[in-house]
């Protein structure tokens, strides 16, 4: 069994069956993509993994421990980080401060704060955050106001915030949505670099095929809440069921 295991997950919203009998097994240190047309249930699935939604039935385990019923912050403490469709960063803070907060959370996930110590006096955390910024080539922007950055840079910052926690599993929700081609390619390079440099498992939700095929080791195709096929990218490309799901025609 892989690092992340989803078994027979069902989720209904009123009369709409968003997920039905979804099974997913993600092997450690691989990039697993979940693709599918709009409304296929990709984001619902992701939200079930991070504790934002609770599936009606089924199990979700991470490293053999169930994540169901846990709050998002508890799931994060288990080693799962999430990148959002629109970068969720602390836009009022500087880039360095943005990265220091997860450093801090990583060190004392519980409520242990020396309320009167000086933040910038925490040398080890400053160093850790700066090293992360060097790794992701944004150290020159360390004092910049996070709100004033480009979308691509915000995405990069969000990745830095996730990675500095050294998660075992990184979930990416359409990491290139709404990006220009150049930004998209930068993001792909960044993800490749991340993958090459550390032991990390990634689950990518995406509908941009270019991104999916350049990154993933395995792909699951989701349509109307049900997994159609799961295979390596080469076999997915010309798969008749996939064409049918995307183009709505009998292949």
């Amino acid at each position: 069994m892989g690092i992340l295991n989803v078994q027979n997950v069902n989720k209904r919203f009123g009369g709409l069956k968003a997920l039905s009998n979804v099974n997913l097994d993600v092997k450690e240190n691989t990039v697993h993509a979940v693709i599918g047309p709009n409304g296929a249930g990709k984001s619902t699935l992701l939200n079930c993994l991070v504790g934002k939604l609770i599936p009606d039935t089924g199990t979700v385990t991470f490293q053999d421990k169930s994540v169901l019923g846990k709050k998002p912050f508890e799931i994060n403490q288990m080693g799962i980080s999430r990148v959002f469709q629109t970068p969720e960063i602390f836009s009022d803070l500087s880039v360095l401060e943005n990265v220091m907060i997860p450093c801090f959370a990583r060190r004392d996930g519980s409520f242990k704060v020396n309320a009167l110590s000086n933040m910038m006096g925490q040398r080890d955390m400053v160093d850790q955050a700066e090293q992360m910024l060097i790794d992701l080539h944004m150290i020159d922007k360390r004092n910049m106001h996070a709100a004033s950055m480009s979308r691509g840079d915000k995405r990069r910052l969000e990745m830095a915030m996730c990675l500095v926690q050294q998660p075992r599993l990184l979930l990416l929700d359409e990491p290139t949505a709404g990006m220009a081609r150049a930004d998209t390619n930068n993001t792909i390079d960044l993800l490749k670099q991340i993958k090459a440099e550390r032991d990390i498992t990634m689950v990518i939700i995406e509908h941009d095929m270019h991104v999916v095929f350049s990154l993933s080791d395995r792909i699951t195709v989701l349509a109307q809440g049900t997994p159609l096929v799961e295979d390596i990218p080469e076999n997915i490309k010309g798969h008749p069921k996939v064409k049918e799901a995307y183009l709505g025609e009998a292949a």
């Binding site: 994060n76 999430r82 907060i101 997860p102 933040m119």
Partner: peptide, 29 residues
């Protein structure tokens, strides 16, 4: 002043800016 400049103050500012991210950073706000 000490509170403003402390890690605690920074967490509070983080909560003000983006509570969603705080929750997905492993902090209980």
């Amino acid at each position: 002043v000490r509170l403003f400049r402390s890690p605690f103050g920074m967490m509070l500012r983080a909560i003000k800016t983006n509570q969603q991210r705080v929750n997905y950073t492993g902090l209980n706000s």
